[in-house]
Simulated assay, not measured.
Amino acid sequence: MDKRRAVVIGSGIGGLTAALALHRSGWQVTVLERAGSLEPVGAGIGLAPNAQRALDVVGLGDEIRSLAAWQGEGGMRAPSGRWLARTDAAAAAE
Score class of each variant (00 low, 15 high):
V41M: 10
A85G: 06
R24C: 03
Q28L: 09
R53E: 08
G75S: 11
I9C: 08
G15I: 01
G46A: 09
L84K: 06
A6Q: 05
T87E: 07
I64P: 05
S37V: 05
E33I: 00
A68G: 04
G10Q: 04
A54Q: 10
G59Y: 07
P40A: 10
A93M: 02
A78N: 09
I45H: 01
N50V: 06
D2A: 01
N50C: 09
L16R: 00
Q71F: 13
Q71G: 12
V8R: 02
S25M: 11
T87S: 15
R77K: 11
L32S: 01
S25T: 02
K3P: 15
A19P: 02
Q52T: 11
A6W: 07
Q28G: 06
R65Q: 04
T87F: 12
A51F: 04
A18S: 15
L32K: 02
A51V: 04
A78L: 14
L38M: 14
R53D: 00
D2P: 02
G46C: 05
S37E: 14
V41L: 13
G36E: 12
A89Q: 11
T30K: 13
L60W: 05
L55N: 01
N50I: 11
A78D: 11
R24L: 11
V57R: 12
S66T: 13
I9H: 06
E33W: 02
S80T: 14
A54H: 00
W70R: 07
D2V: 00
P79F: 00
A6H: 02
G46N: 09
L20F: 10
V57Q: 13
G36C: 03
W27P: 02
G26Q: 01
H23V: 08
L55H: 05
G44E: 06
A43P: 08
A48Q: 10
D56Y: 07
L55R: 03
A43V: 12
G44N: 03
K3L: 15
G15N: 07
L32P: 07
S11M: 09
E94L: 13
A90W: 03
L55D: 05
R65T: 08
V7G: 00
W70K: 07
W83M: 06
S11A: 15
N50A: 13
K3M: 14
D88E: 09
I64D: 05
V29F: 06
S11V: 08
